[in-house]
Nucleic acid binder design. Structure first.
Length: 431
RNA sequence: GUGGGCGUAGCUCAGGUGGUAGAGCCCCGGAUUGUGGUUCCGGUUGUCGCGGGUUCAAAUCCCGUCGCCCACCCCA
């Protein structure tokens, strides 16, 4: 094999494609039941969009983004995430006015140039949802309800929703400084990565998995204890509403998120069976992002699920999703070149009634065609050989009953009449 | 970017101490005339990841390189 796919890019074969489609269908159903409308977004955006939203110094933009210069010199990027595009589209198309309270969802591939591993690829798919124009706690609670319902609908096993508040512009800067201060006092106990984080992104000190850092940071101040009054009230109300709604969440005061735009409510859905990458989805509130991208001062909260991870986390006994193979119900078996034309024409007419009909090769012997019929699980085989062409009537083999029905119908018969005859000799589902 | 593991037919793998490649599955064909699921017989596909070295001889030893996987980082 000379030419292969690119590292981190892969082919989704039919079995997996069927599962992905089932997951997408289940998710779409829940999203639409909450009143979300689908939006299709470009795969390419100006690089500037992500620098201004995700953050120019974030890992995603700094070292994971696929970007290149277009012929006119503008920096183009393959989108590493969906929220930035959704917000851009929301502002650019005037939805801030026509749809001031908007619920939008999208799905599709995202691109990040990371080292591939279990559940992580350079091209991966997300299903995302954004809720614009509401900054009240009920909007947060509704969003968490949606997240929980999607997990249930998809059949994700062993899920847990971690919840935290990241504060806002009023209280986070002071906390950030306090955390940095604490970190500097314990700098000698921190790993090199964490030392670098001290100035650049002290919040990340909290979720380092290095044992030494964990120990050093165990007594560090937590955002949750430094929230300003409005943030505190908001967070408490979200928790209260979730309790009433019956959505279980786990308070995780050490959870931070890597994207710059989050504020207040942040959450992550983790599941079992994923290896080290155990997050199936995550999101949070991003009040201020709409304004940062040139729109009005509008609130927003959203999340995204990783399709590959949803699949991994629901796979082994995700039987409720089933793998709906495109089961062909009828195999058209032309024996000899003379039958090719009539078979093609008949198969086509039968398909117009909604039947699934696969056409075999006229050059193959009937035995081989029958073998294939069995392999694909065909319910009936319509045999067209010299005798059938001569008489103008088809022979039908009932694969289940192991019976032939000679001259069952005329080649020129009405398609629906043919279907009726097939139903008379054996019950079958047409779809 | 950093570690660790692995690279033999489409798939799963076998090939002690070097002798020049195999099994099962899958696929295709046959077992007398136009009929499947079992059985039997036969068959196709390999630069043994790639390059170099040692050797009379390497899939097997040495070096390098690439790729995949897992983990760190980060995140979906």
């Amino acid at each position: 094999m000379n030419v292969t796919s690119i590292k981190g890019f892969r082919d989704v074969l039919p079995d997996e494609a069927a599962r992905r489609r089932a997951i997408l269908d289940a998710t779409r159903g829940v999203l639409e039941s909450y009143g979300y409308a689908e939006i299709e977004l470009p795969l390419l955006e100006k690089g500037e969009l992500f620098q201004r939203s995700v953050g120019a110094t974030s890992d995603i933009v700094e070292k994971e983004m696929y970007a290149f210069e277009d012929r006119d010199g503008t920096l183009i990027a393959l989108r590493p995430e969906g929220t930035a595009s959704a917000v851009r589209a929301y502002v650019e198309n005037g939805l801030t006015r026509s749809l001031p309270v908007g619920r939008l969802w999208y799905s599709g591939p995202m691109f990040r140039r990371e080292r591939p591993q279990k559940g992580r690829y350079r091209q991966f798919s997300q299903i995302g949802a954004e809720f614009f124009g509401r900054d009240d706690a009920a909007a947060d609670a509704e969003t968490l309800c949606l997240v929980a319902d999607i997990c249930a609908a998809v059949g994700v096993r062993g899920t847990r929703i971690d919840l935290n508040s990241l504060g806002d512009a009023a209280c986070r800067p002071a906390y950030r400084e306090a955390l940095s201060e604490y970190g500097r006092l314990h700098a000698s106990e921190l790993c090199t990565d964490c030392c670098a984080r001290l100035e650049r992104n002290p919040l990340r000190l909290l979720d380092c998995k290095n044992p030494g850092c964990k120990a050093a940071m165990s007594a560090a101040p937590l955002m949750i204890d430094h929230l300003c009054d409005p943030c505190r009230a908001h967070h408490d109300e979200v928790l209260r509403l979730l309790g009433v709604a019956g959505v279980a969440v786990t308070a995780n005061p050490r959870m931070v998120r890597g994207l710059d735009y989050y504020c207040r409510t942040a959450f992550e859905v983790v599941a079992e069976g994923l290896g080290a990458q155990d997050a199936v989805g995550g999101g949070g509130r991003y009040d201020g992002l709409v304004a940062a991208l040139g729109g009005p001062d509008m609130a927003g909260i959203g999340f995204a699920f990783g399709l590959e991870r949803l699949d991994l986390a629901s796979r082994p006994d995700g039987d409720d999703l089933g793998v709906a193979a495109a089961a062909v119900k009828i195999l058209m078996a032309p024996v000899g070149e003379a039958a090719a034309g009539p078979a093609l024409a008949l198969a086509r007419r039968l398909r117009q009634t909604g039947l699934r009909v696969e056409m075999e090769s006229p050059g193959r012997r009937l035995k081989a065609q029958m073998k294939h019929a069995d392999k694909i699980g065909a319910r009936f085989v319509v045999i067209l050989g010299d005798a059938e062409i001569a008489s103008g009537r088809a022979t039908v083999r009932d694969m289940r009953a192991q019976l032939d029905h000679a001259s069952l119908f005329g080649l020129a018969d009405d398609a629906t009449a043919i279907v009726t005859k097939l139903e008379q000799i054996g019950q079958f589902e047409q779809r």
